[in-house]
Amino acid sequence: MATTDFPAEIAQLRSTFASIENVVDVEKVRAEIAALSEQAGAPDLWDDPESAQQVTSRLSHRQSDLERVERLGARIEDLEVLVELAGEEDDEDTRAEAERELGSIKKSLSELEVVTLLSGEYDEREAVVTIRAGAGGVDAADFAEMLMRMYLRWAERHGYATSVLDTSYAEEAGLKSATFEVKAPYAFGTLSVEAGTHRLVRISPFDNQGRRQTSFAAVEVIPLIEQTDSVEIPESELKIDVFRSSGPGGQSVNTTDSAVRMTHLPTGIVVSMQNEKSQIQNRAAALRVMQSRLLLLKKEQEDAEKKALAGDVKASWGDQMRSYVLNPYQMVKDLRTEHEVGNTAAVLDGEIDDFVDAGIRWRAAARTVAD
């Protein structure tokens, strides 16, 4: 069996780590942490609970980012010491431990390297995710609910806070649509590669003849609006309807007309909110999501103009980006990256990091080709 060339491997680790440090800009992160810590220590911080939550959450995540980079640098140093020790003592057990740690560090570096690819204009933002049932009837509605659970479980695994803004239940089962926030730095850049049409193939639990059914659901991911963004919407451009919130099967969950449906008349964009307790809260949440969608629409229009000037670039996501096949075999496959796994249950339980990482690398490669 070939022995590992540890000096060459460690040199490569150091080179990759140096590139990551350069992109992450550790000194800038430290400066941001210092500024956020000063804000977090202000005596009037919690006079504005929403702002305070943003500051403390951002501080926690940036501290975690810095710790992750520093810990990885320390592990590379420790690996070098471990290799020296194995050589001095000619100890096979220590050498085997070094082999395992080398593999583990490579994996951690690869995961951290993916984060450095999130350099889009809004990639640092929190995300608003909307899932809509497509073709396939009740199976599509059930699939939409499965996808929502998948993303919420993914966020839970990473310790990301989420907030469900709106759920529109289908008559028989599942969801017509649902909208939720993922409150973590880079949530938009990370989850934006999940946007597109998802397809499910399975034996339908709603078909009494046990036939195989294909159904579809659409995933939309937009960056959360921030106070510094200039997206002003004149009142004259908005139509606002209020109605009574409802739960599964049409069951009323609120005895007052607190739910809000907001329509942007020039674009036809519609946002519904019903998960807050008051009409005022639902209206504020709807306006925030509406501003986020208009911000992204503006960006897409600007990008389209740039593409028109640059010529046609073949980097389309296509109508269908991922298939979840539960019958006649078990497989989840991304049609853009070709990444696939056979453990469908784990994927639908939120284990989608490999798909997300592959998607981010695919997008970065596509942008490089386009440039």
Rank of each mutant, 00 (worst) to 15 (best):
S60W: 02
S292D: 07
F6M: 04
G311Y: 10
W317V: 06
E338G: 03
Q301V: 01
L13K: 02
L72C: 04
T255Y: 11
S292Y: 05
L287S: 02
G174T: 02
Y324Q: 02
V81T: 14
D353A: 10
I222E: 12
R95S: 09
D229P: 05
Y329G: 07
A173K: 00
R293N: 09
R71F: 09
E237R: 04
H158A: 11
T344G: 14
K106I: 05
V231L: 06
T116L: 05
G318D: 11
L287V: 01
T162N: 11
D90G: 03
T267W: 07
K306P: 03
G311A: 13
Q301H: 06
E126L: 10
T255K: 14
H61G: 08
G350I: 06
Q279L: 09
D349Y: 13
I203R: 14
R14A: 06
P223C: 13
T162H: 12
E351H: 11
A2S: 13
D91R: 07
M290T: 03
A52V: 01
T337F: 04
I131K: 03
S278E: 04
V26E: 14
I105M: 08
E338S: 15
E84V: 14
S292T: 06
A310K: 10
A161Y: 00
H61A: 15
I76W: 05
S64P: 00
D90Q: 13
D44Q: 15
Q227R: 11
I360T: 03
M146L: 15
L265W: 01
E220V: 12
G196W: 03
